[in-house]
């Protein structure tokens, strides 16, 4: 059996450092397998989040060799074999312990967003008719597994720490899913511009690149939402009409 060298960040909010481990790696090993092996054999109290181990729950997000990744979907044999593999917690969120970060902020932001509100049902049994073509667009956004890797990589959060005025790619995808749902009646455009701060996004597309679900976050969610914000808030003709009607902005 082959061995690999892992450098795993260990510590808490007071600080920490990379600890080095030599680990036996089986065929087909993913990074999470190696972390589990370290935990079972060398560091019983190593803190790591995981659940499904199949890329479906989005729990095991970390930075592998500096890139935001799901540990369960990152094959060890696809990483350079000639140097140690580093595994660190997501940098955008405060560390709890070792590879575990405090992602509660994401849950707070989501709860603050105007909820889904359907139109009256089309049929007596309480159901709606929707075309497959129309549901496919929001269905792309509903593939999101809330791993928060897009939040981790986004420079507005990662480098500028604007958590208080910028909701981040995950939540634009969440809003886009409701805005494009054929039966939703809510309007979240003003909220996107103000509280959710979509204007801070300068479409560098880093989020799209790291999304393990392959959601085209920037092109399919953020840009269309930005267009709606622009249409509603900055369209000169609409402004003129509002001015004449006296409804203000």
């Amino acid at each position: 059996m082959k061995t690999a060298t892992f450098k795993v960040w260990q510590g808490n909010s007071d600080g920490g450092e990379l600890e080095t481990y030599e680990v036996e790696v089986d065929q087909g090993y993913v990074v999470l397998d190696a972390i589990h092996r370290i935990q079972a054999e060398q560091a019983n109290d190593l803190a790591v989040r995981w659940n499904c181990k199949a890329g479906k729950c989005g729990s095991c997000s970390a930075e592998v060799n500096g890139s935001p990744k799901l540990m369960c979907m990152t094959r060890v044999d696809e990483l350079p074999a000639d140097k140690p593999i580093t595994v660190e917690p997501m940098r955008t969120f405060p560390v709890v312990k070792d590879l575990v970060t405090d992602v509660s902020w994401n849950y707070e932001v989501k709860a603050s967003i105007k909820r889904f509100s359907p139109k009256t049902a089309d049929h007596e049994d309480g159901s709606w008719s929707m075309d497959q073509y129309d549901v496919e667009r929001p269905q792309e956004f509903r593939k999101c597994i809330e791993c928060f890797l897009c939040q981790d990589v986004c420079h507005v959060l990662r480098d500028h720490q604007l958590h208080d005025r910028f909701a981040g790619p995950r939540h634009y995808v969440y809003v886009a899913n409701m805005e494009m749902n054929p039966i939703d009646t809510g309007d979240r455009v003003a909220e996107l511009r103000e509280e959710l701060g979509i204007g801070y996004c300068n479409i560098t597309k880093c989020c799209t690149k790291v999304c393990p679900e392959g959601i085209t976050i920037t092109d399919n969610a953020i840009i269309p939402l930005k267009e709606r914000v622009v249409d509603q808030s900055y369209d000169p003709l609409a402004r003129l009409i509002k001015l004449v009607k006296g409804t203000g902005d």
């Binding site: 049994d125 309480g126 159901s127 008719s129 497959q132 549901v135 749902n181 939703d184």
Partner: peptide, 24 residues
Amino acid sequence: APERVRELEGWGALMDRTPDGLIN
């Protein structure tokens, strides 16, 4: 079960559709 499934779409779920636009 049918009512429990239908009510999910009122909460935002989007199931795959039949050609008639119903839940597939």
